[in-house]
Design a protein around this nucleic acid. Structure first.
Lengths: 230, 230
DNA sequence: CAGTGGTCTAGACCACAAG
DNA sequence: TTGTGGTCTAGACCACTGG
């Protein structure tokens, strides 16, 4: 090979954009032209540009060619790990406690959220996750029993619901939302803080083939920060 | 070609994982074996598996082979667009107002955050972004004057600082953090809410070649939710 | 050492959309 | 219509690392 790698090409492209040789909105040369310039195969240029397009730096369209994005949309990526992992990665000792576990008919707001039947049976579980015995995360979860056969016989004393679902209902789709919320009484008590304190909350709705499996709200203890590199 | 696409292979792999043919932790066949099975080139299998590995579903190591991730780390991706775009995408009419603009020596906490010199000059700008004339986002930004030549002559009445920086200092690296915060007086007043209200906040530190360019804190009006598909 | 993934090549055909 | 990106192929060599 010529020693040209797709990463080398990416570096060069980024350099040219930074140096304003190619400016936001500009059309850059075609793959064929760049392959000729760099003395490599088109496939190599293709991979380089395709990946840059995935990050939002370039925009590509057949026939129209490749442009530098006019206003680059940064794509921030966050790792959503199993909570135990998250805590252990921070050097904490993980422990969890189940505060409540009940089989109930879905209340109306959960029916609406999860698009459940009026008579749908759910498992409602509230769990506290601790790091070094300090409250770390308060979990309020609703599970659609119909969607997860086998959950009746699961034992959540050793493995948390969180982890059990990951293992037994993998690769599900859904949405995740981040928001801020003033602590209510239940949250304040669980997280050992005061009512009204601003909490970082993530809500996740998980589906397998259009069917809602679980809705979970995770409220982090005050001071939590979710960070990523750009 | 045989009609086999890398996407078809990805679908098949996901199906096998869901069907528990391949379970978390399991080693799956090598690229060569899968290429033979699917009747396609190894490069096609490679792309399929490589992309799945990027999403965290598979783990690959030379010689060791490819495994189904024992506890899959979901990667959630968020688009960080220019604020004007974000508002317009939601159907709002964008407007912004500069609440304060001052050239000042960096206060100590900013010095520390941005790793600035004691005598570093900064531009401190507080901006309110509005959607349909309703407060949407309160921006508190510090800019390292030394890192952005040309900013002295910029006019921020038409183009917001946000947008100016994107256009003039593109492709910078840095970190972004999400957190929840009780509104202080300045935030409450700007966002037309009450002190103590939980606000969703993002903080961004932007660098070009190790040099801090800008630190910005964005406090969203109450009720803001940041959502993405998984 | 040997098997696996990582990458590049040269060529080909296809799908899409701008002109 | 035709140029562009999107993808596949068959083969090759390399880089890493487990056994």
């Amino acid at each position: 090979m010529s020693g040209i790698t797709y990463q080398r090409i990416q570096t060069e492209v980024l350099h040219r954009i930074r140096a304003r040789v190619w400016r936001p909105g500009d059309l850059i040369p075609s793959e064929v032209a760049l392959a000729a310039e760099f003395g490599c195969a088109r496939a190599t240029v293709n991979r380089a540009l395709r990946e840059l397009a995935e990050t939002g730096i370039l925009e590509r369209r057949r026939k129209a060619g490749t442009r530098v994005s006019p206003d680059p949309v940064h794509k921030a990526t966050f790792d959503i790990a199993v909570i135990r992992r998250e805590i252990e990665a921070l050097g904490g000792v993980y422990r969890h406690a189940i505060l409540q576990k009940a089989h109930v008919l879905a209340p109306s707001f959960i029916q609406a959220l999860m698009k459940l039947d009026i008579h749908a049976e759910t498992l409602h579980i509230r769990t506290l996750h601790l790091s070094n015995d300090q409250p770390y995360l308060y979990e309020d979860r609703w599970i659609n029993m119909a969607a997860v056969p086998g959950i009746r016989s699961a034992d959540f004393s050793r493995v948390s619901v969180n982890e059990w679902l990951v293992q037994n209902a993998p690769l599900s789709g859904g949405e995740i939302t981040f928001l801020a919320k003033n602590a209510d009484e239940a949250e304040a008590e669980a997280l050992d803080t005061t009512v009204g304190k601003a909490l970082f909350v993530t809500e996740r709705l998980t589906r397998i083939k259009q069917v809602s499996v679980t809705f979970v709200r995770l409220a982090y203890a005050p001071g939590y920060r979710m960070t990523t590199r750009l």
